[in-house]
Write a protein that binds this DNA or RNA. Structure first.
Length: 292
DNA sequence: ATGGTTTTTACTGCGTC
DNA sequence: GACGCGGTAAAAACCAT
């Protein structure tokens, strides 16, 4: 290896290929664009650019103590000096990993906060999310995964645990990683941490949808009731909870004469109208059978 | 990878305002 | 004519194997 200077055009940096020293950087600002003026734009911009994090937070510029017990002239060290060096090595290693974790955490918590407020999630959810993230970090679940990904997964998990779930799509919309990675990371983290993850209860979506549509409490109650009957009838397996919830809300709006259109429901629930139709038929059937 | 299931997309027809 | 709604077929996404 020659230690040449290489221009990394993708990152806009000129770095020494051997030691990783960055000679010039930030010729290009490739940070994400945070501002979006309408929802279409939001979709585009929220995904701009990969997270900056390189494998080592300091990009390999921190101190390393050589493993050979030689001094600067190549002479061997006395055993007393060797012990000293050994101690230095372990301490250096400790400090390095410690503040690497700290930076990691700092960035992750920032992201969690950002996403949580974009999704309108309350304080306690953010706290749960940070706890989950911390545990993931302590259990060394991070290597091989992006900070952003794990942070998003933590938030997703926290929201579900708190009974105020957000769908994968919603979460993916405010995250800088795609939803497949979020799903994968979430599964992994949940398994490794032994998180209890009952499938999301459709009812937990109802309040949010109802209030987005400005429906009465009565309608909201009705929707819950519909979902209870559905559960009795066992219409539950395999169908998406969000779809069920959306259908229940729609049906309830009909039953209480507060007409909202299928289209409106599909908007706030992020579910297709067809699915609403199919589900709400099933819901009404189930309820009728329950009467007899 | 595969096959079965669910969801989405796109299109069509009907009634109403 | 646009809108809300219902149905259908085919494509796509999802999930367990």
């Amino acid at each position: 290896m020659g230690g040449r200077l290489e221009s990394d055009t993708e990152r806009g940096e000129t770095v020494c290929s051997e030691c990783g020293l960055v000679v010039e950087e930030d010729e290009i600002d490739r940070g994400p664009e945070w501002r979006a003026f309408d929802s279409a734009e939001k979709d585009e911009k929220s995904r701009v650019g990969a997270p900056t994090t390189k494998m080592m937070h300091d990009e390999g510029l921190s101190t390393n103590i050589g493993w050979q017990d030689k001094d600067a002239y190549g002479n061997s060290l006395s055993s007393r000096q060797r012990q000293k060096m050994q101690r230095l090595r372990t301490w250096n290693e400790r400090f390095r990993t410690r503040d690497s974790k700290e930076r990691n955490l700092k960035q992750a918590l920032g992201e969690i906060d950002r996403m949580a407020s974009a999704l309108g999630l309350p304080e306690n959810v953010r706290e749960t999310a940070s706890v989950i993230y911390r545990r993931a970090l302590d259990d060394d679940l991070l290597p091989g995964r992006s900070i952003e990904g794990v942070a998003t997964a933590s938030l997703y998990a926290a929201a579900r645990q708190a009974g105020t779930p957000r769908s994968l799509d919603e979460v993916a919309n405010v995250s800088r990683v795609g939803k497949d990675e979020i799903a994968r990371t979430y599964r992994y983290v949940a398994r490794e941490l032994g998180l209890e993850i009952e499938p999301a209860d459709p009812k937990s979506y109802v309040p949010r949808f109802a209030s987005d549509l400005e429906l009465s409490d009565e309608a909201e109650r009705r929707a819950r009731q519909l979902l209870d009957s559905a559960q009795e009838a066992g219409i539950h397996s395999g169908k998406s909870p969000v779809g069920l919830a959306a259908a229940a809300v729609y049906a309830a709006s009909l039953l209480t004469n507060e007409k909202v259109t299928q289209n409106e429901v599909s908007e706030v629930a992020d579910i297709s109208e067809v699915t609403i139709r199919n589900r709400y038929h099933e819901l009404l059937e189930a309820e009728e059978e329950l009467q007899s």
